[in-house]
């Protein structure tokens, strides 16, 4: 009886762990494929951070922690950075980007956005 339980436990463990190795084709791509080009990840990450920075600045100014001069200066600098990043993203894009099914785009400038966005992040068109 005890032997049976021990055997059963060992067999179950080996079966579960070994299953993908018996069917390698089904699992071949799991966890080994990089989903996106790494340079995109970096650029998009950097862009979100600059946007965050601009939002922070605006709020910091509104709550009276920044003087008008400092605010304008920092804002101008981050806007330059943002423009630079957006340019690099554009440069990476393939020439003919086809809109993919299901992705929401801005009716005016055709840039992508999330389902919750109320304004286009690129041209500011109200959606």
């Amino acid at each position: 009886m005890e032997i049976l339980i021990i055997l059963a436990l060992v067999v179950i463990v080996v079966l579960i762990v070994g299953y993908p190795l018996i069917n390698p084709e089904r699992y071949r791509d799991q966890g080994v494929r990089q989903e996106t080009l790494p340079e995109y990840d970096d650029l998009y990450g950097a862009r979100e951070n600059v946007f965050d920075a601009l939002r922070d600045l605006q709020f910091e100014f509104a709550t009276g922690k920044l003087s008008t001069g400092d605010y304008e200066q920092l804002k101008a600098r981050y806007e330059v950075q943002a423009a630079d990043i957006l340019q690099q993203i554009d440069a990476l894009k393939p020439k003919k980007a086809k809109p993919v099914q299901g992705a929401r785009t801005c009716p005016r400038c055709n840039s992508a956005m999330s389902a919750q966005d109320k304004f286009c992040t690129k041209c500011g068109t109200k959606l």
């Binding site: 494929r33 979100e48 992705a103 992508a112």
Partner: peptide, 22 residues
């Protein structure tokens, strides 16, 4: 954070659009 989730989704949509997803 709703703002964070929104940003993630937007970036994803953009990547699809830009053909950045392998």
């Amino acid at each position: 954070d709703p703002r964070e989730a929104q940003a993630v989704e937007r970036v994803r949509a953009e990547k699809v659009l830009a053909g950045a997803i392998v």
